[in-house]
Simulated scan of single mutants.
Amino acid sequence: MYQTKLVSFDELDGASLYQLLKLRTDIFVVEQNCPYPELDNRDQASLHGLAYENDTLIGCLRILPRNQAGAVAIGRVAVHADYRSNGIARKLLNEAIESIQEQGEILIDLQAQAHLKEFYASFGFEEKSEVYLEDGIPHLDMQMRIEEVSKRLQE
């Protein structure tokens, strides 16, 4: 079984930070054959959702602070290939959305890989752009308005 937690950058020790950067690089750069600058100086201001099996990091995401348009963003959602389809990304996203809501935020942006559109839509994210290429991979912008999702869940 796996455990999840949400931590600030400053709460990451050296071993945890190494595992986080390695997991993301293994997936986004190596597995997806997409050389891009993984180290973008945005991790320091982000909260990090982490999923562990014992002491091994198996999934992650990050929550970026509110942008000028008034939305926070969820990004770098990744699960190790051996652990996909086990609900890890779903659990991390649910915890991230709950944390964002608890902070009083109402808008969440994300850049979804196009093949994951339905997965993100299942949380209440709606398409906000046409499909475009980001580092050679089809993406689309999606957004969730938390208050609207909460209303739908209560109906």
Rank of each mutant, 00 (worst) to 15 (best):
G75Y: 08
A96H: 02
E102W: 08
G104E: 11
G75I: 02
N94L: 12
A112C: 05
I88C: 10
I106K: 11
E98S: 15
A114N: 03
I88Y: 11
I106N: 11
Q103A: 12
S85D: 13
F125M: 05
I108D: 04
H80K: 11
E102I: 13
I97T: 02
R90I: 04
L93R: 04
Q111H: 12
K91W: 03
R76F: 00
G124Q: 03
Q113P: 10
E118L: 09
Q101W: 01
L92D: 02
L93F: 02
L92N: 03
A78H: 03
E118T: 06
A121Y: 00
E95N: 14
I100R: 07
A121S: 13
G75H: 00
R84T: 06
A96T: 00
H115C: 05
I100M: 00
L116R: 06
L92K: 01
I108E: 08
L116T: 05
L110G: 04
G75V: 04
L107K: 15
D82H: 07
Q103G: 03
A112E: 08
D82S: 13
L110E: 06
I108M: 13
N94S: 15
Q113M: 02
L110W: 07
E98I: 12
G104W: 10
E95Q: 15
E118D: 13
Q111A: 12
E118F: 00
N86F: 12
S122L: 08
Q101F: 02
F125Y: 06
A114R: 02
I106T: 14
K117V: 00
E118H: 10
S122Y: 03
E102T: 14
N94H: 09
L107N: 15
V79K: 07
V79M: 01
A89G: 12
A112S: 13
F119M: 11
A121G: 09
N86H: 15
H115I: 13
D109S: 06
A78Q: 01
D82I: 05
I97R: 00
I100Y: 03
I100T: 07
S122D: 01
E95R: 11
A89L: 08
E98Y: 11
E102D: 15
E102C: 14
D82P: 04
L116K: 01
E105Q: 15
Q111Y: 04
S99C: 14
G75L: 03
D82K: 11
Q101C: 13
K117C: 02
A114M: 08
G104A: 13
Q103E: 03
E98W: 04
S99M: 12
S85E: 14
L107Q: 14
I88S: 08
I88D: 00
R84Y: 06
V77T: 09
G124K: 02
K91G: 05
K91P: 03
N86W: 05
L110R: 08
N94E: 14
L107P: 10
I106V: 14
I108T: 08
E105W: 13
R76I: 07
A96Q: 05
D82R: 07
Q101A: 15
Q101H: 14
S99L: 12
S99K: 15
E118I: 02
E95D: 15
A78V: 11
Q101P: 09
L116M: 10
A112M: 10
L92M: 10
